[in-house]
Amino acid sequence: MSAARREALLWLASRVSAMILALCVVVHLATMIVAVRGGLTAAEILGRTRGSMVWALFYGTFVIAVAVHAPLGLRTVLGESARWPERVLDMGLLLFGILVLFTGLRAVVAVTMA
């Protein structure tokens, strides 16, 4: 794949993941604010999320969007300011993305699987 095509597709991935994140963050914050009105314990939260396919899908999507968006943003920042070599940068951020995906999905499994 040419560098031009790769960059164009990465830009598209960054924008699409940003759109998903915008929606997810609003739903996440609104849910937190509404749910904890009057107090809510961790056990009560887990009682509502465990076994819920809807929350598993929602937070799974959220984590995937973060795992795509965050490394792409860091790639731009580090490429411009730290001037890391392109291959080192791409490999490092691929690993970072995998780490975010793994730890994020692990957390999703922990709070949604019974």
Binding site: A4, L9, L12
Partner: peptide
């Protein structure tokens, strides 16, 4: 240009 290049990349039209 960002929009058009992204579309062209999806269609496999970027050299």
């Amino acid at each position: 240009l960002k929009r058009l290049t992204a579309l062209a990349a999806l269609r496999g039209e970027l050299p």
